[in-house]
Simulated assay, not measured.
Amino acid sequence: MKKYRLIASATMGLESVVKDECKELGFENVETFNGRVEFDGDEKEIVEANLHLRCADRVFIKMGEFKALTFDNLFENIKRLPWENIISVDGEFPISWVSSVKCKLFSKSDIQKIVKKAIVERLRVAYQTERLPETGGAYRVKIQAHNDIFLVMVDTSGEGLHKRGYRNLINEAPLKETMAAALVLLSRWKGGDRPLIDPMCGTGTIAIEAAMIARNVAPGVNRNFASEKWPIIPENLWVDLRD
């Protein structure tokens, strides 16, 4: 299996909780940054991270990180990345999210166009084709730029990891499941004879997440992920790890 640098994005302030989760799962070279935790892993770790991380927002493959001051810089750096190692010949690859803070390149729409064009050129050469139908699985590309440093990622999760799959009806302004799980983990409660009391229960998110922690139920076991449709991840991996 191929090794990747993976990113678990996290709500500001919860990075240390997500880092502890990653270490407990046995992930290697775990590092913490503002709003994210990075670690090394192969296809198996991509599946495990999506199924088991309780407090992360999403799991990404880190494609690259570089400085770009002009659109030519951006184009060449994006084109240099090995997109064909991730995106299949029929893969759909929208530039779904762009942020630019304190950067010379600040136009989000222009960044989207340049990035898309560079990926298309790379894949056309790699697959020796002029046509990329984009009818297959989704590979949503996220660009995060700060102080002219561009972080380029591909989303493996699809919908945010807070969407566990156990709640069909969503009330207004509920506490996110990832935040509820973090509150339980920070309290050090793990079940057993010690009671858990939530006097402001509301829709029961804290109680449900606490019960899943006590029963050791993987938070992502009842939902689907974008990378389930990726050819680089064997289908039996999802089946085996869910079991």
Score class of each variant (00 low, 15 high):
N224R: 10
P199H: 11
F225E: 06
N171S: 11
I206T: 07
S227D: 09
T205P: 01
G202P: 12
M153L: 15
S187V: 03
T156Y: 08
H162P: 00
I149T: 14
N224E: 08
M153T: 06
R223Y: 05
L169H: 07
R140L: 04
I213N: 02
D193T: 12
T156P: 03
M200I: 03
E228Q: 14
H162D: 00
K142H: 15
M212H: 12
R140A: 12
N236W: 13
H162N: 01
N171L: 06
M153F: 11
H146P: 10
K190L: 13
P234V: 14
L169W: 12
A218Q: 08
S157L: 04
R223H: 05
A211V: 14
M212Y: 10
G220C: 09
I233K: 10
D148Q: 03
I208T: 13
V152M: 09
L169P: 02
W238I: 04
D193F: 04
P219E: 08
N171K: 09
L185H: 09
N236K: 11
L151T: 09
N147T: 08
I197F: 12
K190T: 13
K190F: 12
N224K: 14
S227H: 11
N224Q: 15
W238N: 11
R215P: 06
G191I: 07
L241T: 08
A226D: 11
W238R: 07
A211Q: 14
E172R: 02
D148T: 02
D198L: 04
T178R: 00
T203S: 15
T203F: 01
G165Q: 07
L169K: 10
Y166N: 06
L196T: 07
W230M: 13
A218T: 01
C201G: 10
A214Y: 03
R223T: 08
P195R: 10
F150W: 07
D240S: 14
E209W: 03
R188C: 07
S227R: 04
I233C: 02
I213L: 15
A173I: 10
L151G: 12
P174G: 02
A210G: 10
P231E: 06
P231A: 08
E235A: 15
G202N: 06
P199Q: 14
G158W: 06
W238H: 06
P234D: 10
W189I: 06
R140W: 07
P234R: 10
G220T: 05
